[in-house]
């Protein structure tokens, strides 16, 4: 069921509840979850597309 967007990082396919359960079970740390999200932001949201400039 899990499509391409989620397959590169195992934590990306987790729901919030799933990630919370992994924190409780100490299978993952908050830092690891933050890094997983930051990595995906770099891939899928690499730059701010600024179409309107202040001096325009």
């Amino acid at each position: 069921m899990v499509a391409g967007a989620q397959s590169d990082n195992p934590w990306a396919s987790e729901s919030l509840a799933g990630a919370a359960a992994a924190i409780r079970a100490r299978r993952v740390t908050p830092s690891e979850l933050v890094r997983a999200c930051l990595e995906r932001i770099e891939i899928y949201n690499p730059k701010v597309e600024c179409l309107y400039h202040r001096d325009a």
């Binding site: 919030l16 919370a20 924190i23 409780r24 740390t29 908050p30 979850l33 933050v34 999200c37």
Partner: peptide
């Protein structure tokens, strides 16, 4: 020590 079920969630 977990603050709540949201502890450490981005």
């Amino acid at each position: 020590r977990l603050r709540s079920p949201l502890h450490g969630i981005p």
